[in-house]
Amino acid sequence: MPVVKPVVKPARPWFSSGPTAKRPGYKLAGLSEALHGRGIRAPETTARFAYGLKLTREVLGVPDDYVMVFTPGSDTGAVEAALWGMLGPKPVTVVAFENFGLTWAEDVRDHLKLDPVVVKAPWGDLPDLSVVDWSHDVVFPWNGTTSGVKVPDGDWIAADREGLSICDATSAAFAQPLDWAKLDVTTFSFQKALGGEAGIGVMVMSPRAVARLDENVPAWPVPKVLRLTGKDGKFDRTLAEGVVINTASVLTMEDWIDALEWAKSVGGCEALIARTDANYAALEAWVQKTAWVDFLPQREDIRSTTSVCLKFTDDRVSALDDKGQKTFVKRFKALLEDEGAVYDMEPHRNAPPGLRLWCGCTVETADVVAIGPWLEWAFATAVAEI
């Protein structure tokens, strides 16, 4: 029996995993006081960037003795700045269970010419973290944006580690609890959990990470846009005071400040995590009652609550080859977007065919509930065309 097209649409049908949905009630006009046309190092501009760092620290609950800086290039730039500026003194392990973990492993091997140990797992799974050697510097994602897999906690990270823990937390920050005592370098971008604009990354560094910058002389030239040290070869402390490595968008910063002030107004990080968990629970309830779909990760404790990745379990879709399944996803996506019901529900281009739906804190739970009937209608329509 054909599924009837739903009537009620999500009020905010945006489910991209980056840039993610803006905060509820967002209006571009609210940024009208931005310091357009001012020098990036003018005192007023630097003060706004410093205020952005201060708000970020307050919302996330970053320890007082940790240092925070902005980097060019979003989260990618922040991770690369850590790799290029800090690696070398110790062996390196990269934990890779999704696209970006694999990218960091390639960069360490092919560009820095180091020989990392790569601890891998297939899509939808988490590797055996007990094999990680903490005499190494260890690079890992907290939440795999492209695979829907997260580390369950920070218990696997050694408290007495010799190496640095370098964590790509871009789709976990503001949405999942981060164990700061176990993290030496934590990176994220504006455009993930709080729906900011792209282009600027954030790096949070423990005293151990700052000491590494002060002491380490990389064996390779570090590009200026990744350079966290000054002419004396030590960490440039002005970066922690609102100075930026290169020219950054003041409008993007004002957008970030707007998101952070909203986050404080709703109750801070604890409230943001609760909003995320409620969204995930709503989607989980729909998955559990829907026969043709399941979570890509089979283990419940490693399922991402933000970038939720699903797979098709219907035999008619499973019988298609990879190209056929990708074509099916394109048709599925087009049906939803032509109706203005759900935007950007497709998986990452390197991930297995399926669905990926952002459930972070800027999404409203009522909108997550509203997408279920639309997904069912799109599936029934697309599968009938096979």
Rank of each mutant, 00 (worst) to 15 (best):
K5M: 15
V7A: 04
G30I: 07
L31Q: 05
L31A: 03
E33S: 13
A42F: 01
G52P: 00
S74P: 07
G88W: 11
K90D: 08
V95A: 00
A105K: 02
D107R: 13
D115F: 04
V119S: 00
G124S: 03
P127R: 01
W134S: 00
T146H: 14
D155C: 07
D168Q: 10
A169C: 13
A172I: 02
Q176H: 14
P177R: 10
F188E: 03
M205G: 08
A209I: 08
R212S: 13
D214I: 10
D214S: 10
E215M: 10
E215D: 14
E215A: 15
W220I: 12
P221L: 09
D232S: 04
D236I: 03
A240P: 06
V243T: 14
I245E: 10
N246L: 14
T247A: 14
W256V: 00
A263T: 03
V266I: 15
A281L: 11
A282K: 03
K289S: 14
T290F: 04
A291W: 02
A291Q: 12
A291T: 12
E300Q: 14
R303P: 01
T306Q: 09
L310K: 06
F312W: 15
D315L: 09
D315N: 11
D321E: 13
D338K: 12
G340L: 09
A341V: 07
P347M: 11
R356A: 09
L357W: 10
V368N: 05
V369N: 08
V369M: 04
P373F: 06
W377F: 15
